[in-house]
Amino acid sequence: MFNNYAQGLTMMTPSSAAAEKLRKDIHSGHYKIGQRLANEHELASTFGVNRGTIRKALKILQEERLIARRQGHGTFVTNPTYAQPSGTAVSLLGAMSWEKEYYFGDILSEAFLRSISRGYMLTTTLNTTSDIESRNAEALMKSGIQGLIISPKPHSIGTYRRFTEAGIPVVMLDSMLPNVDEDFVSVNDRMGAYMATRHLIELGHTRIGYVGNENFRNDFPCGPDRLEGFNIACMRHNIEVPQNWYVQSDSRVESDYLPKLRNLLGQLNRPTAIVAFGDSWAVRIVQIARELGLKVPRDLSVTGFDNSELSRTNFIPLTTVSPEPDEVGKTIIDLLIERIENPRPRPKRSILITPRLVVRESTAKPS
């Protein structure tokens, strides 16, 4: 069947021809929004080509945003502009975040899958700057979304008001707007930092420092909560932390905080363990410790936060805190759909997901 179709596409490569056939099936409504495609092996068999050809074809459609792929879950039709649902109305949900890779990527992927299972379709956009947010908010509004998830920036108050005044439910992700009472879902950052600190204490560490950027309140609103979790754990276990063992920066420029970090780790009376704000900071701490001749974890134990790919692939895999992105993604979709399907007024809800400590090779008992 496919070979006959491909005869009319002699100028195309096999992968382009396969992509064109799938594209026509999506445009015609043969595939519904949210429908899972057959796996690569089945598609290759159907089209009479190898899996490599199908993989290239799917990559073409993914770049066109006609499909979305997630390892271990499958390939789904996603584009609401072209993928007609064969006469079945599909309710669209929107999500806005200031990044979609490092932290929010896994959350949004799970949210997407959850929305499909609930009969909705989630489309994601960025709100990195005020201009970007304004353009994307306009696009979401025109698409007729039924509800909005937003990880707000300081400039997001206008977008929030625009959607709520239009009667569109909004749920906040990861942070709240000042003086706004709204439904909210996040990991419990305070608990996560407490868990990491307690882990070090239970290993026998009493000389513990903290490295982070709690002053980036606009970019990282979780910073103060993580710092507070660290302080609470130390206080409850009667551990005093010298003020110069807190390395914090008001800048993302490494030259502003690396000298402080090198000075801390170069002291004779230095910490034997450090709790880092995030995995990227923890990786940098391990690198600097190595430059100074310190062995991790023999001379210095280090914990991160986020359970990112960095924590898993670092040359010394990091003990870290998982924000449980799958649970966050499921919870926020369920909360938003509840608002859509049960619009009766009720008190706003704040849901904090319990994080999980992931112990790897960067922590050990003090030597």
Rank of each mutant, 00 (worst) to 15 (best):
I67R: 04
F305L: 02
I67D: 09
I145H: 02
N238V: 08
W245P: 09
V283A: 11
Y246P: 10
L113F: 02
Q146M: 12
F2M: 12
L352R: 12
D299V: 02
E182N: 14
A89T: 13
S175P: 08
L22R: 08
L22H: 07
A166D: 14
R70W: 06
H205W: 03
A273G: 08
D306L: 09
D225A: 15
E240L: 13
R207E: 14
F2E: 10
A111K: 05
P14W: 03
P347H: 09
A17E: 11
L200Q: 09
E327K: 13
I149R: 04
A233T: 03
M191F: 00
I316P: 05
K348S: 14
G8A: 12
R344G: 09
R236G: 10
E20T: 14
R356Q: 12
L352F: 11
F184A: 11
R262E: 13
Q146T: 10
I353G: 12
N342A: 11
L61W: 02
A57Y: 04
T13G: 13
S255I: 05
Q287W: 09
I337Q: 08
E324K: 14
I54W: 03
D225I: 00
G34S: 04
G48W: 03
Y257W: 15
E42G: 00
R298A: 14
N215K: 06
F76S: 11
E64M: 06
H199S: 13
E240F: 11
A38D: 13
I145Y: 09
A19R: 10
A139K: 13
A95C: 11
L66K: 07
R190I: 00
L258Y: 10
G329R: 02
R70N: 13
G29H: 03
V187E: 14
N342P: 04
R36V: 07
L294I: 12
K24E: 15
K56E: 11
T81W: 01
V296F: 00
G119W: 00
V296Y: 03
I232N: 06
F230R: 05
L37Q: 08
A282V: 03
E214D: 15
M195P: 09
V359G: 07
I60D: 13
K21E: 15
N136G: 05
R162E: 08
Y210K: 08
G74A: 10
G119N: 01
G119S: 01
R284F: 00
